[in-house]
Simulated scan of single mutants.
Amino acid sequence: MSPTALLMVSLGIIIGTLTVTSANHWLTAWLGLELNMISILPVITKQKHHRSTEAATKYFLTQATASALMLFSSTLNAWQTGSWNITQLNNELACIFMISALTMKMGAAPAHFWLPEVLQGSTLTTTLLITTWQKIAPITLLYTISNHAQSNILLPIGLLSILVGGWGGINQTQLRKMMAYSSIAHLGWTMTAISIAPNIALMNIIIYMTMSTPFFLLLTTTSSKTLQTITTTWIHTPTATIIMTFLMLSMAGLPPLTGFTPKLLILDKLITHKLTLTAATMALLSLLSLIFYLRTTYLLASTAAPTTNQSTTLWRLKPHQNQMTAALTPIALFNITILPTLLM
């Protein structure tokens, strides 16, 4: 991709997201989402491969359907209430349609079908972009309408997302698909808490983004795409192996790491609102995600010295990649040591 095209695409992605986050009118938010979607399609199809073309097609069709449903919902609300303001989504049917559209935009269950396939057909950098930056706009809209969102709609979506994210990631050997199901599971926790404690839900998704960003960048540095290739990281970059191990444990939500904090706060809020059964179900379903997180952690730890690794090294590090690993260390340590600060 030429520098000019890359600049135009980057500006489109950034301006589209900023337009949505600063919008007060539904049509302005819709315009920002469309600009964001159109701008990322060249990034997905940057690889000259049929898998990337298939991923871009699936992404476009799904996002276009969600945008049409979102436009229909906002029009229905304006017809019934006479207002296009985002914070005044008072019509119940329009609110249900809007939640469905935003669920499809983010890739939460049951509209999750596109996310693993799109991530598998994209590069690791594009995968990072889709699982982090592309979720800012729909999550912002969901946060804005959280006062009108009904718990009896968001709670089943959240529980189903946690179940699908944990169950789907167990059988994966491709790291991109595994992280796709991890994203679905974390979206489930956010969807569950958005109507009860929006600030905690927002903190949950922000912490997940700050954990997944260094992990994807380390995968890009080591060119690891499968569980087999990730076992060779200790040979060349022991630091990256240790960082990825802690990041996986943190994303799994094990105490006293950072990922445990938002889950603990969400469960506390659910119990406070007399939703003890829902909190217990979420805690049990999170054990499914814990399985593939611990499996990956075991593969990273079991190949450390003095264990002899039998896997064939499929990549070779370059000097600038070692510098990237050193630069990512403070970000990863931030995700590991933030827990005492949040609990004070």
Score class of each variant (00 low, 15 high):
264 L>C: 02
294 L>P: 10
250 S>N: 08
2 S>G: 12
108 A>Y: 12
77 N>I: 03
131 T>A: 05
137 A>C: 14
203 M>G: 13
64 A>I: 02
326 A>M: 15
200 I>T: 14
144 T>K: 12
235 I>S: 14
244 M>C: 15
224 S>P: 01
214 P>D: 01
112 H>N: 14
279 A>H: 02
1 M>W: 01
113 F>K: 07
11 L>K: 00
251 M>C: 04
127 T>D: 01
168 G>W: 06
79 W>F: 04
315 W>V: 06
191 M>F: 15
101 A>L: 03
58 K>P: 03
177 K>R: 14
302 S>R: 07
323 Q>L: 15
215 F>C: 00
321 Q>L: 05
253 G>R: 09
284 L>G: 08
314 L>S: 06
169 G>M: 07
338 I>M: 10
241 T>A: 14
302 S>T: 09
221 T>Y: 01
343 L>T: 11
20 V>A: 10
135 K>E: 11
268 D>V: 01
15 I>V: 15
322 N>C: 11
45 T>Q: 04
169 G>N: 07
274 K>P: 00
47 Q>C: 01
240 A>C: 10
82 G>V: 03
287 L>W: 10
304 A>S: 04
38 I>W: 02
338 I>S: 11
308 T>K: 13
26 W>G: 03
221 T>N: 11
49 H>T: 05
121 G>S: 11
74 S>G: 08
136 I>H: 13
31 L>V: 06
90 N>D: 10
152 N>V: 07
343 L>M: 09
304 A>V: 00
